[in-house]
C-alpha cells in the first residue's frame, strides 16, 4: 500500500461513524412515517385530524393544574413549556445523577410528581401520564434526536443494544432480525419498519389510542412469544435508550400516527 493510500484509508476510518455490524448508517435511517400509506401520513400531518393532538391538549391543561399536597403545578416550576420543554424529549431517556441510571420521560414526570408536587405517581399508560408526556414531547417536534449522547449513558446504551440483539421467546427472534436485517419486507402483508421511535407517545390505529414506546416493545415481545418486561423495568428503559440513540439525528414527530 502506498503512503498516500494509507493516509486516505486512515482518514476514511477516522471519518466513519462508530457503527457496529448490522447497524443502519445515519443517512439510511428512516422514520416509521416513510413506511406508511398516504392516508395515515395525512392524518399525522394535519393537527386537526391527528387524534394524538387531543392528548397534547389534555397535557397542556394538566401542565397548569395544581396537584399533590405541595399544591403545585408543573408550570409553577417550569413556566411556559413552549420554551422550558423545547428539545427536552429529544434527549430522553436521560441520566439521573441521584439514581445513577437513565430514566424515561414518563419516569421523570413521576419523579417530579413525587419530589416536587408530593403527588402519587401516575400509572403507566394512564391517560394523564400519556397526555403530559405527549405535551412535553410535542415541544420537541422537529428537533433532532440526541438521546444517549451523555457519556454517563454509554454502559446503559450498550445494555440496551445487547437486549436488541438477543433472541428471545418461543419464536427465538431478536429485534435486530426484523428491524436491522429485514425492514421494508412484509410480515403478513404489513411492512416491517426500522423501529425508529421518533414519535412517542403516538396514536396507533390498531390500539385506537395513544400509547408509549414501552407498550409497543411489550407487544413485540408478546409477538415472539416472550415474557414481556415490566413497565419501567431496567430492560425496557435501556432498550428505549438504545432505540433512541439508534435514531440519532431523526426529527421528533410527537404525536405520531401509526397503523
Amino acid at each position: 500500500m502506498s503512503f498516500w493510500r494509507a493516509i486516505a484509508l486512515a482518514a476514511l476510518c477516522a471519518a466513519a461513524p462508530a457503527l457496529l455490524a448490522g447497524e443502519i448508517p445515519p443517512e439510511a435511517r428512516r422514520s416509521g412515517y416513510s413506511f406508511m400509506g398516504p392516508d395515515t401520513r395525512a392524518m399525522q400531518d394535519d393537527d386537526t385530524s391527528n387524534p394524538g393532538m387531543l392528548f397534547v391538549l389534555d397535557g397542556e391543561a394538566l401542565w397548569t393544574k395544581k396537584a399533590g399536597s405541595a399544591d403545585k403545578a408543573c408550570a409553577d416550576c417550569h413556566g411556559d413549556a413552549r420554551s422550558s420543554m423545547k428539545g427536552v424529549a429529544a434527549r430522553y431517556p436521560a441520566f439521573d445523577k441521584s439514581l445513577g441510571h437513565p430514566v424515561t420521560l414518563d419516569q421523570r414526570i413521576n419523579l417530579c410528581r413525587a419530589d416536587h408536587q408530593q403527588a402519587t405517581p401516575l400509572p403507566y399508560e394512564s391517560r394523564d401520564l400519556l397526555a403530559l408526556s405527549a405535551f412535553v414531547a410535542h415541544q420537541s417536534r422537529g428537533f433532532a434526536i440526541t438521546a444517549g449522547d451523555d457519556p454517563q449513558l454509554k454502559p446503559f446504551v450498550a445494555q440496551g443494544r445487547d437486549l436488541f440483539m438477543r433472541r428471545e421467546g418461543q419464536l427465538n427472534l431478536a429485534c435486530t432480525n426484523c428491524h436491522d436485517d429485514n425492514f421494508d419486507k412484509r410480515l403478513a402483508g404489513a411492512p416491517i419498519t426500522q423501529a425508529q421511535p421518533t414519535g412517542y407517545p403516538l396514536y396507533r390505529l390498531e390500539w385506537q389510542t395513544l400509547g408509549s414506546l414501552e407498550r409497543r416493545l411489550r407487544s413485540c415481545m408478546t409477538g415472539v412469544r416472550a415474557q414481556a418486561y415490566d413497565y419501567g423495568s431496567p430492560e425496557l428503559v435501556t432498550l428505549e435508550l438504545y432505540l433512541m440513540s439508534r435514531a440519532r439525528g431523526l426529527p421528533m414527530e410527537t404525536p405520531a400516527v401509526r397503523p
Binding site: R166, E168, G169, Q170, N172, R225, A226, Q227, A228
Partner: peptide
C-alpha cells in the same frame, strides 16, 4: 435452549 419464553408457551 430458548430465552425468556412466555408463560403460556
Amino acid at each position: 435452549g430458548l430465552v425468556r419464553v412466555g408463560r403460556n408457551f
